[in-house]
Each structure stands twice: as C-alpha cells, then as structure tokens.
Design a protein around this nucleic acid. Structure first.
Length: 482
RNA sequence: GGCGCGUUCGUCUAGAGGCCUAGGACGGCUGGUUCUCAACCAGCAAAUCACCGGUUCGAAUCCGGUACGCGCUACCA
C-alpha cells in the first residue's frame, strides 16, 4: 500500500488561519498520523488580487500554535518543494501545454465583458450559466498565433456527454452530468493557474493520496476528476468534510462569528481546547473496549488519532457553538492549574495586565486554586483577581460605613483562621441583627470592590501575605471616603 | 433558475431492522451544599428521529417522493 499523504492548501487571502481551515487541518493531520503518513501544508497564493501580505506567516504560526505539526511546507524542506504555488508557475505552464496538445484544453480570447453579458442572457433565459464554447473550435494554429498578441486564458475542454463520478469516503458515490460542467478556466491571463489546475497538478506531483477538504468543493470535484483523467493520472481518494456553520446555519463567516484562530488565541482559549472542540464537529469518540465511557467529550489529539476513522465523520454540517468550547477550555485551564502551575503561570502572564507587578508570579501561583476554577478563558483572569494587584477604585454595592467600622473593631482577629473568621462575623451579625450573608458581602465588596469573586477568607489571607495590613488599609479608606 | 449535498432535544452527538416508552454532553431550569461566584451532588424540562408513502411480523435505521436548509454556479479559493 502506498504511503498516506494529506495536505491543507490555505490561501493567503485572509487575516489569519480560518477556523474552517483549522478544522480541515486537524482532520487531515489526524488521518495522516493514524496511518503513519505525512501531513503537508501548501500555500495556494494564485489569487494576486486578494493576496494579503503577511497572511501566510500568520497562517503558519497559528498552525504551530495549535500544535499541528506539518512534515512538509513552505518554511520546511521537503522532497516536493517548493510548497508555494507562486513559485511553481513554470510547472503549470508546462502541464497546460500537455493538455493543449492532447486536446483537453483550449485557448479562449473572450473578454470579461462578453462573459458577463453571456451569463446575464443565460440567466434571463433560465438556462445553466456555462461557457458557450465560442473559442472552443479555434484551430490550434490560429489560436496560438493569436495568443502572441492578445490576452487569453486556457480552458478545460469538458466532454459534452456522459457523466463524471467519484467515490467520496464520507458520502459515497457522487456523480455529475458532463453537459452541466463548465469549461473551467485553468490558466488565467496573468499566467497564474486557477485553483482547479493548481490543486490537481500539485496534489499529483506531491503524491497526495487523500484529498480531505470542505464540502464546498464537491461541486468542483468533477472538474478535478476530469483533469486527472486528461493527464492520465491515477485518482486520489476524496473525502468532503461537513462545513462549519454560523448559528443561522449559513457557512461560517467573519460577519457572523469570530473565524480567525488568532481571535481564539487572543481570547485566552487553549490550543488543546480548540482542537478538542473541533474534533467534536462531525465526529465522536467511540466506546472503547478499555472501558472508557462512550461519547467522551474531552480528549487529546493523540487519543483521537488512536480511534479515528475517516468514514465515521458525519455528513451533516454542524453549527460552531462557542459555549461548549468555553466549557472545555475551563476544564483544561483547571486541569493545567492543578498539574502544572508553572505552565498556568506562563499562560496568565500572556493575558494579564498586571505582569509588571512585583508580586505577580507569586500571587498567580498562590491563588491558582482560587482563580483557575472560576475562569473559562485566560482573558477573564484579570477581572477576577484584579483586587490582589490593586486597591478597588469603585464598588459594586453601596457600603455602610458603620458596618465597616464593625470590622475594624474586631481587627486582625478575623484573619487568624477560617473557623475564627466565620465565628467572628457570625457573632457580629447576631449582635447587630444583620443577616450574616449581608455582612460577609459587605466585607467582600469593601475589600475587593466586587460582589463576585473567590472565597473571601482565602482571598483576605492572600492579600495579607502580599502586604501586611492591607485589609485594614482598604477598610480605612472606605471609612474616610465612603 | 440549474446542479450537488444534507435533515435525531436550542447546540454537539449516540444510534448501522427488534436492546429506543431514542442514550450522553453543552446550555437552561429546580433543589442540596455554601459568605458571593465557580465547583460538586440530586433531579427536571427538552427530539411525534423534517414530512408523506412503501418494504417488513417489526423502521430513527432500508426504498421512493415532497418540503426545507446549505453549498456551488468567477480569469476567488
């Protein structure tokens, strides 16, 4: 059996790695590793108009951030380099000549204006909008001499009859009538190939065994099959993944959802959470004979690789729902804080604005068990622990100065230990006929400024550890300027 | 319009003819625990398996049709 080789082929036309591309990358990667094969990244930068400078770099770095290692790619050595289509132009030119000579492609001199008109009239008549073939029967001699002075494109010569079909690993047999397949442009007038030519030539040359890509490519798959046939090449295996969708069921888009992987990174989502969540899209962990419960939601990429089967991917397009992602992320953060405090610290360091605080490191480490179970993303860290680093400047609740004085009267006694703390506050409440609940809340807000936060006693202790007398100081300042 | 792909709780899914009066997870709700929040525990609501026919002793599961949704329909990928 030949080696399994998969790939993703992102275009540097977006800000960053698209979440849909990340999904495709995950599946390609996992499938390759499952089969001890190779996973490749190829940059398809043939659209010079929408090209965004720096996009490739960001795409690659997001891939690395996710931990999806590629074996070959534009910034790596590999037996089939270069891995950037703009550097492979001569290859496509040559392949086009081959198609031309075999009669599988032809020159076309039609202007964009004519094409637009043609489509408009086709639409009005209600017939399929396909190239009408005006240039199809130009003789080779006329066409090639014309091509020396005029702009042209090269089109695929699709047979008029019969049908083209292929087998999709996820969906089974899919077929199209040839007469409804357009004579696709293969080579643009600027000398760059279109996606269709580039993808087929490169996948073949790079010995890609399995083409695993999004559902939006099903419609153009027959064109690719026709090209393989025209070249006389053996067909790779196809698998079209379900499309990730917006909550309104349309194709995931930046208008309606954060789609850049960098956004999730900036938000404080862990790469393992994102990957884990993506794995849940269209796939689920099977019950394992080892006694693992069926339908496990939280698992690692290596665990996924062990159980993965391409044919188990569902065909239904799932909706990308950030709620469950956050739930997973929370679990991962908690686990990290328990298992590896240093790692937890290093993550907090990235997202916190208090890093310059002298006690930053020790505070984060000491309060990990207080904060970690309460945040879903690292971006939430500051909101919950700001009071460790700075005095509150506003209070989420109106404070009673006379109650605060009560706390002052019992002083440091309440910091002794938890039992004493609770006893003292409860005693005060009884004495003054105040609900203990309200009294605890009063203390909390006076010291932290917030109504929500980590456990009071532990928080106060930590505060004192950082700066002795801090609680008193804060209470005093409340009394001074209520 | 044409072609293609789909359709199980709000969401992610389990389910490959009888184990399904459809299971799990997220989210929601109720109660417990508790100084708040989170966590945890107990529980609840939530899918007439899109609809209609057919095959079968028996269908979420097989077949056909309908509806709906999505994708493609570029010298973009």
């Amino acid at each position: 059996m030949t080696e399994v080789r998969t790939r993703i082929a992102p275009s540097p036309t977006g800000e960053n790695l698209h979440i849909g591309n990340a999904y495709t990358a995950l599946i390609n990667y996992v499938f390759a590793k499952k089969n001890k094969g190779k996973f490749i990244v190829r940059i398809e930068d043939t659209d010079r108009i929408r090209f965004i400078d720096g996009s490739e770099k960001r795409i690659l770095s997001s891939l690395k951030w996710l931990g999806i290692e590629y074996d070959e790619g534009p910034d790596k050595k590999g037996p089939y380099a270069p891995y950037r289509q703009s550097e492979r132009l001569s290859i496509y030119q040559e392949k086009v000549k081959e198609l031309l000579s075999k009669g599988h492609a032809y020159y076309c001199f039609c202007t964009p204006e004519r094409l637009a008109e043609m489509r408009k009239s086709q639409q009005e008549k209600g017939i399929p909008t396909l190239y009408d073939g005006r240039c199809k029967n130009l003789s080779v001699e006329i066409a090639s001499s014309k091509a020396e002075k005029e702009k042209y494109v090269i089109r695929l010569n699709v047979p008029d009859e019969g049908e083209t079909q292929f087998y999709d690993i996820i969906r089974g047999k899919i077929s199209f009538e040839n007469k409804l397949i357009d004579d696709q442009v293969l080579l643009k007038s600027d000398g760059y190939p279109t996606y269709h030519l580039g993808v087929v030539v490169d996948d073949y040359l790079m010995k890609i065994s399995h083409i695993i890509r999004g559902e939006e490519w099903i419609s153009s798959a027959p064109k690719h099959v026709l090209l393989y046939k025209a070249f006389g090449w053996e067909l790779p295996k196809f698998a079209h993944l379900p499309l990730l969708r917006n909550p309104d069921k349309s194709k995931l888009s930046k208008r309606k959802n954060p789609v850049w992987v960098s956004w999730y990174k900036d938000e404080g989502i862990l790469p393992e959470s994102l990957l884990n969540y993506l794995a849940l899209m269209g796939w689920s962990m099977p019950a394992s004979p080892a006694g693992e419960p069926e339908g496990r939601d939280k698992f690692s990429v290596p665990e996924m690789i062990k159980e993965f089967r391409l044919e188990d991917i569902k065909t239904t397009a799932p909706i990308f729902d950030i709620e469950k992602l956050k739930w997973l992320n929370k679990k991962y953060i908690l686990e990290m804080s328990l298992r590896d405090k240093e790692k937890y610290l290093s993550y907090v360091k990235i997202y916190s604005r208090y890093t310059s605080n002298a006690d930053f490191g020790s505070i984060v480490k000491d309060t990990a068990e207080l904060i970690a179970p309460r945040i879903s993303t690292f971006k939430e860290f500051d909101k919950l622990s700001s009071f460790f680093f700075e005095k509150p400047t506003s209070f989420e609740k109106k404070l009673h100065v006379d109650w605060i004085k009560l706390f002052m009267s019992i002083g440091d006694k309440i910091l002794a230990d938890k039992a004493v703390f609770e006893k003292e506050i409860n005693g005060l409440a009884k004495e003054k006929n105040i609900k203990p609940k309200d009294l605890f809340m009063e203390l909390r807000v006076a010291v932290t400024g917030k109504t929500v936060g980590p456990p009071l006693f532990e928080s106060l202790q930590e505060l004192e550890k950082i700066h002795k007398g801090e609680m008193k100081e804060r209470l005093e300042s409340v009394i001074k300027s209520p």
